[in-house]
Design a protein around this nucleic acid. Structure first.
Length: 912
RNA sequence: GCGGAUAUGGUGUAAUUGGUAGCCACGUCAGACUUAGGAUCUGAUGCCGAGAGGCGUGGGGGUUCGAGUCCCUUUAUCCGCACCA
């Protein structure tokens, strides 16, 4: 009987669907395990072979955990709101809902063919009103809460109002946009509009007039993580800084908790590091500088208060709010021109020209609070408005940017730390002895920094503070295809909808572009009295893992019982590209809901594995210039050739299918070939997988040719999961061959089912248990490539073995990787339960004794390290062995171990 | 510029975590069988060398009885942040 994967896979996929094999419910009698994939955005292009990589890994892990007795939640859904569908709608007039629906159907079809164990009853779609009701609900909660720094959690805004009424800001320490000070009387004297404006300064979801990333081409604002190198991540269009009134989320309130929380997570170090950098905590001093002829004090932030005596000028950002006030009449024209110039430059230009020094003197002077010296204040765009206070004290001797500025404008450079050569560059290192600094002289830099923190506070000119690079997340998008804000306006005061009126449904429209006044498309809807912006893509994906726990609950995002059972995601698999976006927002969102008591875990994703990206492997043919003749890669150096991308689907093992090539495109119909050994060999290169390179490999095609089980195992065999690697179909035969070989073990030469009950030999048992141990350990370590190799080694060692004792455990062992073939063989072996419910095999140490001990012994005149000892061997036994051979004795001379450590089942170590 | 990761045959990779480098595959070569195939099976295959043997984990140095693994240094590639004070 042949291995007919098409029939087998169709049969079991149908069976799993009919029987709801993978449906899960809360079951307090079993431990839970929650395995989650980052749900896909259903794009029009469908899945390519790289997309399922992470899904296959998580599917293997889910099936493995289930076999180990866990109640495994493994859901899937769609991140269905987003820009591409809307861009497509603007071009074609097709409603995004229609294209999204169509794309989802296509995704589902492709996913089903690979045999995943998703519980589809729990599917969620972010664009579904019954889903985004809860996105809107969370937003309302954020609107009606503020962050109390003293208790380090979100609290109802009514508490803040009560505090204001009682004593103004005196007893308030809350996260806010700008620090405010007012009394209870001030508060009571405010108009309703003023009160609301004040509260907006504290709400966690708030509206503010801030500098935002504006993308003119997309017609919308973007969050920081949606901009890279001054271009939009989606589409790659230029982004400019613009002051606009926008909705924001106060994620900065959670900066420290998000930083601390990383410690408890099993995430890769690199990913944690990316988040740490993104949060960008830095400890420094806030200091106030008097301004000559003004009551104002200029506030700055510095991490190097020790260099205070080296301050020779100050710089403020062009957007600094006091710029105009600090500018003298003589300098006004120059400053205004400079500010205008800066405004015109895009973010990208500004970044590209970081080496160019520019700036203008304001004409004002400040007083160094320590030396009492008068120092000029400049304006320059190398100081950013959004970080710290938008103003700096410049220490040209010890900061390279200040150095360049001072050199350019001929300002003083005063060294305060010994070391370096200031005629060449600044000395930025935080080491050395202080000089020219009065009371700091002779101190070490680190000592001086610490000392200055205290000194600044003692003198009452500032204090030690912590600054974060993290910014509040811009939450509105001037787009149609997203969640509407449950907000309406009264005299420009934002008013929340009542929770019972959710969801606020997205109204149908026909024209998806902005209005003539440049307003978002929702402004065009007659009778729409709500906010016209919609929420960004990350809104819907921030809490979807909670919804899977209880997807049909219409009373709560997630019910208490479901939340307390499923708690949080045990294993999350997805791409690292979400490090500063989704993975930050989700943590913030979850922590907020945790503060309010809606969820019982502060962190949403306990363990996270980043699968690598699959690149494309392109193939080339070489056309002899000016002809329609193509020369094989090995011979191309003899000709002048032109390299042409060829569809990888008509190339096999880098050899071109000549007939398919002629049929591929009309201009190649009469192509001639110069062959090597009767074959045409193509060239190849690693490139991004994309249509234009003709290197897109569709998983459907692989499933059709080799079957889902082969695809699954081959994707794992390709290399370590975390590593990015090119897709190369060339090696797939090996895996397919392995599965056929496995299949044949269950049949005799005549093709009859031939599992027998003969007793397994010790050698066979050794092979089996070795494999079980290896595979179990590999799955736990996400080392799926080596577990596939272990299966292959196992079959090579077993040879022709039809024994039930061996093959049944192997079938279960392989079932997470190749579930279809495992189900079929399991059923042929006479079981009428699904292989998913079979207990995952355990290994028995007694069959693995050979690896129990290793110790240096002498073999063939060289000191070797392999010898078997029985489990009962003592240190004395082993020590005796060492000194029995002359070579070992010699080795021991002058290097005799002081102590011998013996660990059962492990290597023995020598401690000298 | 700062931070992180990686570097092993013709290719993808493996290495009991400091103990015989190259497992398992792909590819290649040779052979068997044959209804000639994109099938199956067997063997060989790191490099140099006829051989004995020598050399081999990006380069250089070090620690060690012993280094792909640890340390220093250097080069290359990839990723993240980037005028962050």
């Amino acid at each position: 009987m042949e291995y007919n994967f098409k029939e087998i896979e169709a049969k079991w996929q149908r069976r799993w669907k009919e029987d709801k094999t993978y449906h899960v419910e809360i079951d307090p009698s079993r431990p839970k395990y929650y395995v989650l994939d980052m749900f896909p955005y259903p794009s029009g292009a469908g899945l390519h072979v790289g997309h399922p990589l992470g899904y296959i890994a998580s599917d293997i892990y889910s099936r493995y955990k289930r076999s180990c007795g866990f109640n495994v939640l493994h859901p899937m859904g769609y991140d269905a709101f987003g820009l591409p569908a809307e861009q497509y709608a603007i071009q074609t007039g097709q409603h995004p809902a229609v294209t999204t629906e169509r794309n989802i159907a296509r995704y589902r079809e492709q996913l089903d063919k690979i045999g995943f164990c998703f519980d589809w009853d729990r599917e969620v779609r972010t664009c579904d009103p019954s889903y985004y009701k809860w996105t809107q609900w969370a937003f309302l909660k954020m609107f009606s809460h503020y962050y109390d720094r003293r208790v380090q959690k979100a609290e109802p805004i009514e508490k803040l109002v009560a505090a204001f009424e009682k004593s103004g800001t005196a007893d308030v320490d809350a996260a806010c946009t700008t620090e405010m000070t007012f009394t209870a009387d001030d508060w009571r004297a405010m108009s309703e509009v003023q009160k609301e404006q004040t509260l907006q300064n504290y709400r966690i979801a708030f509206r503010a007039d801030t500098m935002v990333n504006w993308c003119p081409k997309l017609g919308t604002v973007l969050a920081n993580d949606e901009v890279k190198d001054g271009l939009s991540v989606r589409g790659g269009y230029p982004v400019v800084q613009k002051r606009m009134k926008q909705w924001l989320l106060r994620v900065t309130a959670y900066a420290q908790r998000m930083l601390d929380g990383l410690e408890s997570l099993e995430w890769s170090d690199s990913l944690k590091e990316i988040q740490r950098n993104w949060i960008g905590r830095s400890v420094g001093a806030q200091m106030f500088f008097d301004i000559v002829g003004s009551d104002r004090k200029l506030e700055i932030f510095t991490t190097r208060p020790d260099t205070i005596y080296g301050v020779t000028f100050m710089v403020i950002a062009p957007e600094h709010e006091w710029l105009s006030e600090l500018t003298t009449e003589e300098n006004r024209a120059a400053v205004e021109e400079y500010v205008e110039q800066t405004k015109k430059r895009s973010e990208r230009e500004r970044m590209a020209e970081t080496k160019r020094v520019s700036g203008v003197a304001t004409g004002s002077y400040a007083i160094n609070p320590f030396s009492g010296k008068r120092i000029p204040i400049y304006v320059s765009d190398y100081v950013l408005a959004g970080y710290g206070t938008g103003a700096i004290m410049a220490v040209p001797a010890h900061d390279s940017r200040d150095y360049a500025f001072a050199r350019h404008f001929g300002l003083d450079i005063v060294p305060v730390v010994a070391g370096g050569d200031l005629s060449v560059s600044s000395y930025d290192a935080k080491e050395g002895k202080m000089i020219n600094s009065e009371f700091l002289d002779g101190m070490d830099v680190k000592e001086a920094i610490k000392f200055m923190f205290e000194e600044v506070e003692n003198r009452g000119i500032g204090r030690r503070i912590v600054n974060y690079r993290l910014r509040d997340a811009i939450f509105s998008r001037q787009r149609y295809w997203g969640e509407p804000f449950p907000i309406y306006y009264e005299n420009d005061i934002a008013r929340p909808l009542d929770e019972k009126d959710l969801p606020l449904e997205l109204p149908p429209i026909e024209n998806f572009g902005p209005t003539e006044q440049g307003e978002p498309p929702l402004a065009r809807v007659k009778g729409w009295r709500y906010e016209t912006s919609t929420m960004p893509g990350f809104a819907g994906s921030s809490a979807y893992y909670l919804r899977y726990m209880d997807p049909h609950n219409d009373k709560a995002l997630v019910g208490r019982e479901a939340d307390e059972y499923w708690r949080n995601v045990d294993l999350y698999v997805g791409g690292i590209e979400h490090a500063t976006g989704h993975l930050m927002y989700s943590r913030f969102w979850n922590m907020f809901l945790y503060d309010l008591g809606y969820v019982c875990e502060p962190e949403p994703f306990k363990k996270l594995v980043n699968q690598g990206m699959i690149q494309g492997r392109s193939n080339f043919v070489y056309r002899v210039v000016g002809t329609n003749t193509f020369v094989s890669a090995g011979l191309k150096k003899n000709y002048e050739t032109q390299e042409i991308h060829v569809d990888v689907n008509i190339v096999r093992n880098d050899q071109l299918d000549l007939e398919a090539f002629r049929a591929w495109r009309p201009e190649f119909a009469d192509a001639e070939f110069i062959l090597e050994d009767g074959k045409y060999t193509c060239g190849w290169a690693i490139e991004k997988m994309s249509k234009s390179m003709f290197n897109v490999v569709n998983p459907d095609y692989i499933v059709d040719q080799y079957g889902a089980d082969t695809l699954r195992m081959y994707e794992m065999f390709l290399g370590p999961l975390e590593q990015s690697k090119p897709w190369d179909t060339n090696g797939i035969d090996g895996v397919h061959k392995f599965l056929r070989k496995f299949w044949r073990l269950f049949f005799d030469r005549e093709g009859n089912f031939a599992l027998n009950d003969d007793k397994a030999t010790d050698k066979e048992l050794k092979t089996l248990h070795k494999t079980i141990k290896k595979v179990r350990e590999d799955i736990e370590n996400f080392s799926f490539n080596t577990s596939v190799a272990a299966f292959m080694i196992c079959l090579n060692e077993l040879g022709e073995c039809h024994k039930r004792d061996i093959l049944e455990p192997l079938t279960v062992l392989i079932s997470p990787f190749a579930p279809h073939i495992a189900e079929e063989l399991w059923s042929l072996a006479g079981h009428n339960t699904t292989v998913c419910d079979a207990r995952y095999p355990e290994y028995d140490e007694k069959y693995l004794v050979e690896s129990a001990f290793e110790y240096p012994v002498s073999v063939n005149g060289k000191v070797r390290f392999k010898k078997e000892y029985p489990l009962s061997a003592t240190v004395a036994d082993i020590s005796a062995d060492i000194v029995t051979t002359p070579e070992a004795q010699k080795w021991l001379e002058g290097a005799a171990p002081k102590k011998i450590i013996v660990v059962p089942g492990k290597i023995i170590n020598l401690v000298k």
